[in-house]
């Protein structure tokens, strides 16, 4: 077991090293000049050159790589060129909307998907099942930004129920901030409910045929109790796993949705960092997002290892 754990840690470190290298390569290949963007349309070539020098953009690639690695090892992800603050601070400042957007859309997705999935499985092959399965696929076929724009046009501009964009001004209360998240969360939740529905249905189908469900039935237990207490309880672990996976996928959804609704979250921060050629920020954001993913996976693997020592890596 110890050996396995070491193997796993070693593997994770290699993956991390690869992630770090991939990020550096991608970012350095990117054309476009943050200095030119900052100085505005009338800046001269000489101004741009001197700002580049100040920002350390004129150092050689190996030099930049070394200082980049050195920084990461010290936990220093560099300074955002455009925002003029440490990358970690910038990411932290944007964490709140992304976090709550993820939580709410996941909640909405689960609230839709769980009952629909369970009932589809229970009435397998019925009209309900067919309709639900097709609807779930339909939801997964809608471009999220397209849906978001239409929601915004209707609920925010036409009906005026919500603000069109943003996250509240200075001193906005928690409630006001959350109010800004309603439309984006519904957009994202609807679209991501598809995956969870499909998975819930599949897991429930598996369990409903199992012996103990049949036994429970034969004992004259009510159908409701059979489905909820026995079947759903046993299907829950794989379902929870896929909900967790969806959470990780949501960061992709958040990138687009936050941009549509002008939410100052990590997703829109990344998009603007790319458009502004804010190299350290793109670098830091990619590292943090990918790094978190690797870490979470690693922790899950380790938990499995503890729970079931037979697992080998």
């Amino acid at each position: 077991m110890i050996r396995s754990a070491f193997n796993r840690i070693f593997g994770m470190l290699i993956v991390m090293a690869l992630v770090v290298t991939i990020v550096f390569v991608i970012v350095r290949v990117t054309p476009g000049d943050p200095a030119a963007v900052m100085l505005g349309p009338d800046a001269t070539a000489a101004d741009i050159a001197s700002l580049r020098q100040r920002l350390g953009l004129d150092a050689s690639i190996p030099q930049q790589f070394l200082s980049y690695i050195g920084g990461i090892l010290r936990g220093d992800f560099g300074q955002s060129i455009f925002l003029n603050m440490p990358v970690t601070d910038a990411l932290w400042q944007r964490a709140e909307p992304t976090f709550f957007l993820t939580v709410f859309s996941l909640a909405i997705a689960t609230l839709i998907a769980l009952p629909v999935g369970v009932l589809s499985a229970y009435w397998r092959g019925s009209a309900f099942d067919q309709a639900a399965t097709t609807l779930a696929m339909f939801a997964a076929s809608i471009p999220s930004f397209w849906l978001g724009l239409i929601f915004m046009q209707f609920f925010a501009v036409k009906l005026g129920w919500f603000d069109t964009s943003g996250y509240g001004g200075p001193g906005a209360s928690f409630g006001e901030r959350m109010h800004h998240l309603v439309l984006p969360a519904v957009t994202l939740g609807l679209i991501s409910s598809a995956l969870i529905t499909r998975f819930t249905r599949a897991s429930m189908l598996d369990v409903l045929n199992d012996d103990y469900v049949r036994t429970a039935r034969s004992k004259g237990m009510s159908e409701w109790r059979v489905v909820v207490k026995h079947a759903l309880k046993n299907a829950l672990i794989p379902i929870l796993t896929v909900i967790g996976l969806t959470a990780a996928l949501l960061i992709s959804g958040a990138i687009v949705t936050e941009t549509v609704f002008g939410l100052p979250g990590v997703g829109s921060l990344i998009v603007s960092a790319v458009l502004r050629r804010d190299y350290p920020l793109i670098q830091g954001a990619l590292l943090v997002v990918a790094g978190l993913y690797v870490l979470v996976n690693f922790i899950i693997d380790m938990l499995y290892l503890i729970v079931d020592p037979r697992v080998r890596y």
Partner: peptide
């Protein structure tokens, strides 16, 4: 197996749209 699998793991650590944005920005 080990090196290729690690590379696959590393690539999969990036959310898909994010990686695509970064790559398109890099390639043009």
């Amino acid at each position: 197996d080990a090196p290729v699998s690690r590379l696959i793991d590393a690539m999969m650590a990036f959310p898909d749209i994010l990686l695509a944005i970064a790559l398109v920005a890099a390639l043009g």
